[in-house]
């Protein structure tokens, strides 16, 4: 009995596996949209301005997925150290035929949650996020809740933490 040559076997296998054995499953929202948090401090934005302190929440968004900018909600717990609303980048502008102009995030986005260092007590701080997003052309996730946390260590000082990088310019594009 003749043995099947390896190249022929490989080609037959390629034909057999041309179609996927299982359906292409969308990712769980916690895998499609992954938030992380870190403490940051940066130099004054202008002469006379105070130093900026806060928590940067960075979202890593899987290719083919996007988050809606205007549906992101952030809550800091405990909230006593907050000095203002979250600073959310402009995002990618989209012109929805029904909803009008809005913005989405792809790939990566960093949201800055400012707090006052003068009242920042050492401790454990949680950021509760409500987000909405979609897998392009396939499905959208109903609002989902995620949580990230940071620790403010005893003796927190500005120089202990890296400067916040400048946000990139907002590209334009449309969700499909």
């Amino acid at each position: 009995m003749k043995r099947i040559p390896p190249l022929l076997a490989a080609c037959v296998a390629a034909a057999a596996f041309a179609a996927p054995a299982s359906p292409d499953e969308p990712l769980d929202p916690d895998k499609a949209f992954v938030p992380t948090a870190r403490l940051v401090a940066s130099a004054p934005a202008a002469a006379g301005a105070g130093e900026r302190h806060g928590i940067d929440v960075e979202y890593r968004i899987e290719p083919g997925y996007y988050l809606y900018r205007n549906r992101l909600k952030f809550e800091l717990h405990p909230a006593e150290i907050l000095t203002g609303p979250p600073e959310v980048p402009a995002g990618i502008e989209v012109d929805d035929p029904f909803l009008g102009k809005s913005a989405i995030f792809r790939d990566r986005v960093t949201i800055h949650i400012p707090f006052a260092v003068s009242i920042a007590r050492p401790g454990h701080y949680r950021v509760r996020i409500v987000a909405q997003g979609c897998a392009e052309d396939r499905i959208c996730y109903s609002p989902f809740v995620q949580e990230v946390a940071v620790n403010i260590p005893p003796g927190y000082r500005v120089m202990d933490f890296p400067a916040t990088p400048a946000p990139p310019a907002a590209p334009k594009g449309f969700p499909r």
Partner: peptide
């Protein structure tokens, strides 16, 4: 082997 390879490529294209 050539036929097998072509069949595989055709299958991938269709998919």
């Amino acid at each position: 082997a050539g036929i097998g390879l072509l069949a595989g490529l055709a299958g991938v294209s269709l998919w």
